[in-house]
Simulated scan of single mutants.
Amino acid sequence: MSSPTLWTDRQGAPIACVEKLKVLRENETELRQTLQDVFEDALLMGVDPDAMRRHLVDMVAALKELNA
Score class of each variant (00 low, 15 high):
58 D>I: 00
8 T>L: 10
9 D>P: 06
63 L>D: 08
10 R>I: 12
36 Q>G: 08
12 G>W: 08
10 R>W: 09
22 K>L: 14
63 L>V: 07
8 T>Q: 13
51 A>K: 01
14 P>K: 05
26 E>L: 10
10 R>Q: 12
25 R>N: 13
52 M>K: 06
9 D>H: 07
55 H>Y: 10
64 K>S: 11
5 T>I: 12
29 T>K: 15
16 A>K: 13
38 V>N: 02
11 Q>R: 12
6 L>K: 00
3 S>M: 08
14 P>W: 04
6 L>R: 01
59 M>L: 11
21 L>D: 04
35 L>M: 15
66 L>D: 15
27 N>Q: 12
56 L>H: 02
19 E>H: 08
51 A>G: 04
3 S>G: 07
45 M>G: 03
4 P>R: 03
36 Q>V: 01
59 M>K: 05
15 I>C: 08
6 L>Q: 01
44 L>G: 02
60 V>Q: 08
1 M>G: 15
16 A>W: 01
30 E>C: 13
19 E>L: 11
54 R>E: 15
64 K>L: 09
5 T>N: 04
47 V>Y: 05
8 T>A: 14
24 L>K: 04
48 D>W: 01
21 L>C: 05
64 K>W: 05
28 E>P: 02
67 N>W: 06
35 L>C: 10
13 A>F: 13
7 W>A: 08
54 R>V: 04
34 T>V: 06
15 I>A: 12
30 E>G: 11
35 L>T: 01
13 A>Y: 09
15 I>W: 04
7 W>D: 07
31 L>H: 13
57 V>G: 05
60 V>S: 06
51 A>Q: 09
41 D>I: 02
58 D>S: 10
3 S>W: 07
24 L>E: 04
40 E>A: 03
60 V>I: 06
50 D>F: 14
62 A>N: 07
14 P>Y: 03
68 A>H: 10
63 L>Q: 08
59 M>G: 14
12 G>A: 12
28 E>V: 01
26 E>T: 06
23 V>P: 01
27 N>L: 15
10 R>G: 14
63 L>A: 06
39 F>T: 00
15 I>H: 05
57 V>E: 15
10 R>A: 15
36 Q>C: 12
12 G>H: 09
60 V>D: 08
42 A>P: 00
7 W>P: 01
64 K>M: 09
54 R>L: 15
9 D>L: 05
28 E>K: 05
11 Q>A: 15
9 D>W: 07
17 C>T: 03
32 R>E: 15
